[in-house]
C-alpha cells in the first residue's frame, strides 16, 4: 500500500446543504480501505479558492478523508469561486444558520463515507477560524482547529458591513477539544482577544491548546502572501496533525 500522499483522489462532489439547497464541495480521499478520520475544511472569506483546496488535499495526503464545501454555492454552482466571493461579500457574507446547516451536511457526508472511522474534525482559517469555532459549539465534532479566526471574541466595530457576531458566550457549548493557532502580531484576533477566548475556555472547563507565534501576524499559513511565516506555519502544521492524530485516529 503506497503512502497516502502518493495515492489520493480529489475532485468535486455535490450534496444537499442544510436548507435543502444543492451545493458543491471539494473532496480529497486517501487510497485504501481505511478506516480514516474525517476533516471538514472551511474556506476563508476570499472563497472556495485553490489554496483551500490544496489544504484539503493535504489532509488526504496525511491519511484523512477531507471535504471543503463551497459556502458560496448559492451564487450558482458554475460561478467562478472568486466571482461568488465578491457577490457574497457585497451581500454582507453568509448567515451563521446557513453555514451551520452546510457544515452539518458536510460532517454527515464524511461520516457516511465507507472508509470513515466515524470521527470528524473541523479546521478553518481567518473567517473560517470563526466558522470552525461555530461548528464546534453547534455540531458533534471530535476535534476542532481555529487558525486566527477573527470575531470569536472582541467587539465588532460599528458600521461593520459583514453580518458577524462574537461567539465567546458559547464556549460552554464546545463539543470537541479545540486547538488554536495565532500570530502575536495579528490585530484580528489581537493577543488580548485570544486571551479572552482562553479565559472563557478555562472557565467552561474545556479541553484546548493554544499556540501563539512571535513575529507572525494574520494569515501566516498563506504560502503565496508576504504574511507567510515558515517557522510558525511548519510548527502549526505539526500541531494540527498531532491534534488530529490524538483525537481522530483509531476506534
Amino acid at each position: 500500500m503506497p503512502a497516502p500522499e502518493e495515492a489520493l483522489s480529489a475532485g468535486n462532489v455535490g450534496f444537499t446543504g442544510g436548507d435543502g439547497a444543492q451545493i458543491n464541495a471539494y473532496q480529497a480521499l486517501p487510497a485504501g480501505d481505511g478506516p480514516f478520520g474525517g476533516v471538514l475544511v472551511i474556506h476563508h472569506l476570499p472563497g472556495w479558492d485553490s489554496g483551500t483546496k490544496e489544504i484539503t488535499r493535504r489532509f488526504a495526503a496525511k491519511g484523512y478523508n477531507a471535504i471543503c464545501p463551497n459556502l458560496y454555492a448559492r451564487q450558482g454552482l458554475e460561478v467562478d469561486p472568486d466571482d461568488a466571493a465578491a457577490a457574497t461579500r457585497e451581500a454582507g457574507g453568509i448567515p451563521d444558520e446557513q453555514f451551520v446547516g452546510d457544515a452539518g451536511a458536510a460532517i454527515e457526508a464524511l461520516r457516511a463515507l465507507p472508509t470513515s472511522n466515524g470521527k470528524v474534525g473541523v479546521i478553518g482559517y481567518c473567517s473560517g477560524g470563526r466558522h470552525s469555532f461555530l461548528t464546534a459549539v453547534s455540531l458533534p465534532v471530535d476535534a476542532a482547529v481555529d487558525c486566527y479566526g477573527a470575531f470569536v471574541t472582541g467587539v465588532v466595530p460599528d458600521g461593520f458591513p459583514l453580518r458577524v457576531t462574537p461567539l465567546v458566550d458559547r464556549a460552554p457549548d464546545l463539543r470537541g477539544p479545540l486547538l488554536g493557532l495565532f500570530g502575536n502580531e495579528d490585530q484580528f484576533p489581537s493577543p488580548e482577544q485570544v486571551d479572552e477566548l482562553e479565559a472563557a475556555l478555562q472557565a467552561a472547563g474545556k479541553t484546548y491548546e493554544f499556540h501563539r507565534y512571535d513575529g507572525a501576524g494574520h494569515a501566516f499559513f498563506a504560502v503565496d502572501r508576504p504574511a507567510y511565516r515558515p517557522e510558525a506555519a511548519v510548527d502549526g502544521w505539526q500541531r494540527i496533525f498531532e491534534w488530529y492524530g490524538r483525537y481522530l485516529v483509531g476506534a
Binding site: P46, G47, D82, A85, P226
Partner: peptide, 13 residues
C-alpha cells in the same frame, strides 16, 4: 465595488 482587503490572486497581504 472598491475595497482594501485580502486579494484572491495578487501576491500581497
Amino acid at each position: 465595488q472598491v475595497y482594501f482587503d485580502h486579494p484572491f490572486h495578487a501576491p500581497f497581504d
